[in-house]
């Protein structure tokens, strides 16, 4: 069932309540709310028109081009979010998100969904969006945790290498902690799915008219794809970051900030 533009306008009127709360508490968030919602409406309107165009065309080259643009956008978003060691992040993120995408997406498309036509934008774009969005966030968190795990305790790192540890052995404890920190929230979300909240994709499918059974099957598949991509991307990102963070004598490089 479609929503009318007037209906959409009414949904935006719900924002009156947070605005009243901000006003009462003298919270300086009203301007940010306007900016955030303004941006969202603008961005989604453009993306919506573009997606509709992609769906209508059903051209695999356009679908692939858009997937590439999504990937580049994700890389730069992570680079912008992380504050340290930014010079080495571009190749690291490109490889991590790129490899994770290349493993998970063909798997889903070849072995699970098998859409016709094969690169159907209707399947590729939304699924890739979810896989990439989650991988991007998780990678940013994992790299941030890993770098802070190292820099908060250089003494541990230096002690380990001074006793004969390789870079891998000396950095393994912060590596483990970073993976744990980035993957644990994902696992908790997965465990609470359906009980605490209905996932967005499933909700969208049900609202769009699919049966609930089809919707949960898609949701299960997407969660497996997301978690696999996230774990792969985190692991590859930290592993490559590690290789670029230290020199050949295992000492931290100084000129990469």
């Amino acid at each position: 069932m479609d929503i009318s533009y007037l209906g959409l306008l009414f949904s935006m009127l719900l924002l009156v309540f947070p605005l009243i709360i901000f006003h009462t508490l003298k919270l300086k968030l009203s301007k940010q709310l306007m900016i955030s919602f303004g941006r969202m409406i603008g961005q989604l309107a453009i993306v919506g028109l573009w997606l509709q165009f992609l769906l209508d065309q059903e051209d695999w080259r356009l679908t692939l081009l858009w997937a590439g643009i999504m990937l580049i956008n994700a890389i730069f978003t992570v680079k912008g979010r992380l504050k340290s060691q930014r010079r080495i992040l571009l190749p690291v993120m490109f490889s991590a998100l790129g490899i994770a995408s290349l493993v998970v997406m063909p798997w889903i498309l070849f072995m699970v969904v098998r859409p016709d036509p094969f690169f159907s934008a209707k399947f590729v774009i939304p699924i890739y969006g979810m896989v990439l969005g989650n991988s991007m966030n998780s990678c940013a968190l994992a790299l941030e945790r890993f770098e802070s795990g190292l820099s908060d305790n250089w003494k541990a790192y230096y002690t380990r290498i001074s006793l004969g540890a390789s870079i891998w052995e000396a950095a393994l404890p912060p590596f483990r902690k970073a993976m744990q920190a980035s993957l644990m929230p994902q696992l908790l979300t997965i465990a609470s799915m359906g009980v605490v909240s209905l996932p967005g994709m499933m909700t969208g499918q049900i609202l769009g008219g699919s049966s609930a059974i089809v919707a949960i099957k898609y949701q299960m598949m997407v969660m497996a794809a997301i978690f696999s991509a996230v774990a792969l991307a985190d692991f590859i990102a930290i592993r490559l970051y590690l290789a670029k963070r230290f020199d050949k004598f295992y000492m931290p490089k100084k000129d990469i900030a």
Binding site: N153, K155, Y158, I161, S162, Y250
Partner: peptide, 23 residues
């Protein structure tokens, strides 16, 4: 010394620091 893999050299020339870190 630069020709040794660093971890091999450091397991033969071991350093103990002023304030030890034990974990």
């Amino acid at each position: 010394i630069t020709e040794y893999p660093p971890h091999i050299l450091r397991s033969r020339i071991v350093m103990v620091m002023q304030e030890p870190w034990l974990g």
